[in-house]
Design a protein around this nucleic acid. Structure first.
Length: 451
RNA sequence: GGCCUCGUGGCGGAGUGGUGACGCAGCGGACUGCAAAUCCGCGUACGCCGGUUCGAUUCCGGCCGAGGCCUCCA
């Protein structure tokens, strides 16, 4: 076993060695629950689920702790709740429930721990007090700020010096900051905003502190892997590192930092103004969850990913093939080709290529290849849906009567039997217009949704 | 302006100092009443310009192009 991971700290692939093989610990930044998840949110969830599965495979399911937080106190949440005229709790509970349903449909295991920020306010306050006590933070005008110049090697993760950042600063600096780079640990709550009592008055935490406090509470002061989207490297992760390392007096916060790349939609940046904003619930209405999952894994996690209909169609075809060949197959030994690809910094495209090769061998009658295909796919969280469920899946908007389809198939079979091919073709065309494609086989005619 | 990624055939996407992964699409064939599905077979690539080298898509430099971060957006 030689798991290698690209570490943002060193900008290179490193052999992964856990601090404690009996308890491998990973923290991933989870959603801010103010709106339904979009595909950009889904990428880290799926990518780190694959890593979670791989770690469980290597170290044993009981020896991996995966924590993924839920941010349930935040300016965006407050703004959205006000907009909708609903209580903050109502919004976060509803959004969290939707998120759970979505990620389950995407074939993701539940993380070992799923802390919510509001459950750890006490931990955050304690950490902020500690940072003030040791001189890394100060109170000013009802706020508590982390004083960036108090940490000599701030900027190590993102690889930017204080001078660079100050040169490029475009943000208006709040008057109470001692240094333009200082960031908020605690801020006062305005009238009607959620808040907690603290030594600095009624207020709420800044964004970064929750991950520092919760990771320490659940995983310890130094843990193995910290993951998230590449956009989080700065400032979010840099600030987490600053808070945690200063508060705990440690050399690192996490030993391996992993970041997934960004995502585009049909070649353009996803944005609401462009009208190409794709949400997970919308996708799940039109495609099986595993199709979305496989589409996501067809690109290596660090590469930019271009989300297209074509890619989903390709993923769907691949899964359909794999399902066909593994219908009555029990998963067998894990193929070395699949494992080798995943070990190399989660090279999922290469692992998928290996699955294609197994499929080909299985199609030629190798039952070993079929068993390997199933095992390899399942390690990636694919082919978990049983064949009946796979074939029974229907898009939400499909408005055809299935009994009617069967009737037409029977009518067509009769027409063919009596050599009335014009009628047979008419029926086939009729179904095609309804979005139904027929497949004639030795065991009769089956149908599927045309893509 | 600063920092950082990336640029592979029609498309997606691995990989490597020297026999052109893999999938989709396409083409030819088998099968079919005709198709679809399936099976067999086939083609095309490494942004541009230099350098190192016996030899570079792979290493180095420059250029061009795309994207990200520096705005509590994965």
């Amino acid at each position: 076993m030689t798991l290698r991971l690209y570490n943002t700290l060193s900008r290179r692939k490193e052999a992964f060695e856990p601090i404690d093989p009996a308890n491998v610990r990973m923290y991933v930044c989870g959603p801010t629950v103010y709106d339904v998840a979009h595909i950009g949110n889904a990428r880290p969830v799926i990518v780190f689920d694959v890593l979670f599965r791989l770690l469980r495979h290597f170290y044993g399911p009981d020896h991996v702790t995966y924590a993924r937080n839920i941010t349930d106190v935040d300016d965006k949440i407050i703004a959205r709740a006000a907009e909708e005229g609903v209580a903050i709790d109502a919004l976060t509970v509803r959004t969290t429930k939707q998120f759970h349903e979505d990620v389950e449909a995407l074939g993701c295991l539940a993380p070992t721990r799923e802390p919510r920020a509001t459950e750890h306010i006490g931990d955050m306050i304690a950490m902020i007090e500690r940072l003030i006590a040791i001189g890394n933070a100060y109170e000013a005008d009802g706020h508590v700020l982390f004083h960036v110049p108090s940490m000599p090697d701030y900027g190590k993760l993102a690889r930017r010096s204080l001078e660079d950042m100050q040169a490029g600063a475009r943000v208006e600096v709040a008057p109470y900051k001692r240094d333009p780079m200082d960031f908020v640990l605690w801020k006062p709550a305005r009238e009607g905003e959620p808040g907690w009592d603290s030594p600095w008055g009624h207020g709420r935490p800044g964004w970064h502190i929750e991950c520092s406090a919760m990771s320490a509470a659940l995983l310890g002061e130094v843990f193995d892997i910290h993951g998230g989207g590449i956009d989080l490297v700065f400032p979010h992760h840099e600030n987490e590192v600053a808070q945690s390392r200063c508060a705990h007096g440690t050399e690192v916060m996490a030993r391996y930092w992993l970041h997934n790349g960004f995502l585009q939609v049909e070649g353009e940046k996803m944005s609401k103004s462009l009208g190409n904003f794709v949400t997970v619930p919308d996708l799940l209405a039109a495609w099986p969850g595993e199709v979305i999952r496989l589409t996501m894994l067809m690109t290596q996690y660090r590469q930019p990913l271009n989300w297209t209909q074509d890619a989903m169609r390709e993923a769907w075809r691949a899964l359909d093939h794999w399902q066909d060949l593994t219908r009555d197959v029990e998963p067998g030994g894990l193929p070395a080709s699949v494992l080798a690809a995943l070990e190399d910094d989660l090279n999922t495209p290469k692992a998928i290529a290996a699955l294609h090769e197994l499929r080909s061998a299985a199609a030629h009658g190798s039952s070993e290849a079929a068993a390997g295909l199933k095992a390899g796919a399942q390690l990636m969280g694919l082919l978990q849906v049983d064949p009946q469920a796979w074939r029974a899946w229907r898009p939400a908007e499909l408005a055809v009567d299935e009994a009617q389809i069967e009737e037409k198939i029977v009518a067509r079979a009769e027409a063919r039997k009596s050599k009335d091919f014009a009628e047979a073709d008419r029926i086939r065309d009729e179904l095609a217009e309804m979005g139904i494609a027929l497949k004639d086989g030795p065991e009769g005619t089956s149908w599927e949704i045309a893509r």
